[in-house]
Design a protein around this nucleic acid. Structure first.
Lengths: 362, 362
DNA sequence: TTGTAGGCGTTATCAT
DNA sequence: ATGATAACGCCTACAA
């Protein structure tokens, strides 16, 4: 018969009430006589009406109940990182009471013209969370529209409220831990530089061009303690990438300790050390960063800086909630805490030939 | 001054054109004189108008550009599984040309009354993808509204189009591979039962109650070859869970082969074997399932059934695209292919005491 | 090429 | 407790 889906107006008509009354029956916003209520529900059932259309309701309310999460790179590569995963869980938890869901968006929809993918400004969102860098063309447009935007790990200079981490201080702390153990000959494995360069040793000039804030900050922290340590940049935060980096490092020299910028990388470095016949921590100490649970690295317990990932996600959610209510909310900076595991120990005695791991790359 | 955001009508007025003209300038749906266009854009810039409101546009078009992905459990636990991750990537890729983004929704919004979380029927979506089970209250409501729903790994009996996998046949195939190698004494490690039970040996009666289709199907396939093999149910698909299961198995007996229902579980079983002083594959063979890249299990290459995870995700996306265009689209069943690695081999000779791994649990 | 008009389906407000 | 009305902001025939 009718090809059109029934609307709340149809239901109201059939039940013999006003549309506004029917609406209230579904939203529960105000009291309705039980009898009227029953009539409305009955009419709805007869018509096959399943409730207000979310799109129309959203327009009317001015809220879609959707928060965008802007990712760098594909879903696959982002969620391989347990930190991102935990962050998202925290975020989802904080947003759930708002009834808001998470919409995954990527920054670079291949720029193909003609609308290849969904974009920040083509999609009905109430707010956005930036996961990597805050530099993104559509961000300004979205903010201009009055939509709250929050960043996790963004550039410091931006005026976007940020859920930051004490990357530099934390990395310095763990570097000091190694220094106190007597380590002098240390190598560093960094996260992606974000420059598009392939993984490999970081040349002197490259260091200033690092595009990923996290990477740069953690490196700077380590550098405060070990200014001349050679650094190898990994591609992604993965065990296998750490393995590659570790192989390169142990092929080039015999540092007594390796500082990895993530626990996954550290796990890979440990593998590489084992491969090279080195015991951890007797022959070489390995330190990580993040402190999230890593599947499959038992029986090691990494010495690492534990960042409050879930709390950060939750904080982002709370911040959004605040902004959405019109309160204004400040950036927050979280602190990491040192956790000693069984992967670091005193520097082995002997072989004090300075800089045995020095600048191998070229 | 004005507190209200400018609308396209404001822009049109200021530019001295009709609203429809301004609209066309932004959508590019039809040619507009360059000069008019410039006037409109200028007016927009002056007013701080950043483009049509996606919500209003969506209502008008009847499309929100959002596809829901319904997950079982938190984001954290779902994305720990590389298969899910790859599936999602494929899905996102297939949906991008449609300009559709992925909205993450979980099945069990803690059931807290009063609307604790976003739900399938409270959110403006164009379609939905069910990731785990298809049994979900809101699904019917959504389908009643005419919204396409597609399942990945759903119950067979449902009338929802499904992207299926030959779980049973595939697992039978790999079991046969082991049988041909002479293995008779085999243990099985299954994925979650979905019953809420804690990990542990599967009692005879439990087997019929398995709620996760994948688990039941793969188990059935293995059972065709090894009807009496003891089976241990893991909680999640994780290396550490496989390790736990493996420990339990090797503590209880000395099977010559272990069939794990996922590669992650297999990786854990291998660890457990190493712990127990068993060499893989000389002393014990280990077979997996999925064939996705697993971070950190080098140098092993698992013998496994490779499922086309990315293709499945893409197929789900294509299916949705078809349904959205009104074409109707059939369920698809994908086939897994056997891949021999270095973790399975001939059953070791000797010790033929039948069923050395038999029913240890109780 | 540009303008006019009507409606997409709701819900908030105000009156009754 | 219920009803009438007016937006929410846009888009698309259709007419000029």
């Amino acid at each position: 018969m009718s090809s059109r889906r029934p609307t709340i107006a149809d239901v109201a008509r059939r039940a013999g009430v006003a549309p506004s009354t029917a609406s209230v029956v579904f939203s529960g916003k105000s009291r309705v006589a039980p009898e009227t209520q029953a009539r409305v529900r009955e009419a709805a059932a007869e018509l096959g009406y399943t409730g207000p259309d979310p799109l129309a309701a959203s327009l009317r309310r001015g809220r879609s109940g959707i928060v965008a999460v802007v990712l760098h790179g594909g879903i696959g590569s982002v969620f391989l990182d347990p930190v991102a995963t935990v962050l998202m869980d925290g975020l989802a938890a904080a947003l759930a009471p708002l009834g808001a869901g998470l919409l995954l968006l990527r920054t670079d929809p291949a720029d193909a013209p003609g609308g290849s993918g969904p974009t920040l400004d083509s999609v009905p969102i109430d707010a956005a969370v930036l996961l990597g860098s805050t530099r993104h063309a559509a961000v300004d447009a979205v903010r201009a529209r009055g939509i709250p935007v929050v960043a996790i790990e963004g550039e410091a200079e931006s005026d976007i409220p940020t859920i930051a981490l004490d990357n530099r201080e934390a990395e310095r702390e763990i570097a000091r831990h190694l220094a106190e153990f007597g380590h002098r000959d240390v190598a560093i494995v960094t996260l992606s530089l974000g420059t598009g360069d392939a993984p490999g040793w970081i040349a002197a000039g490259t260091e200033a061009r690092i595009a990923m804030p996290v990477t740069a900050e953690r490196l700077a922290g380590a550098r405060e303690v070990f200014p001349d340590a050679p650094a190898y940049a990994a591609g992604l935060s993965l065990i296998d990438e750490g393995l590659r980096a570790g192989r390169a490092i142990f092929a080039a020299g015999r540092p007594t300790a390796v500082i990895a910028q993530s626990d996954l990388l550290a796990a890979g470095v440990i593998r590489a050390a084992e491969e090279a016949g080195l015991r951890v921590p007797q022959d070489v100490s390995v330190a990580g960063f993040d402190g999230v649970a890593i599947d499959g690295i038992a029986p090691y317990r990494l010495t690492t800086m534990v960042q409050p990932a879930a709390e950060r996600g939750r904080a982002a959610g709370d911040l959004i909630a605040a902004l959405l209510e019109g309160r204004d909310a400040p950036s927050i900076r979280f602190t990491s805490t040192f956790r000693e595991g069984n992967t670091t120990g005193p520097a082995p005695p002997g072989g004090d030939e300075a800089e045995s791991a020095s600048e191998p790359g070229r």
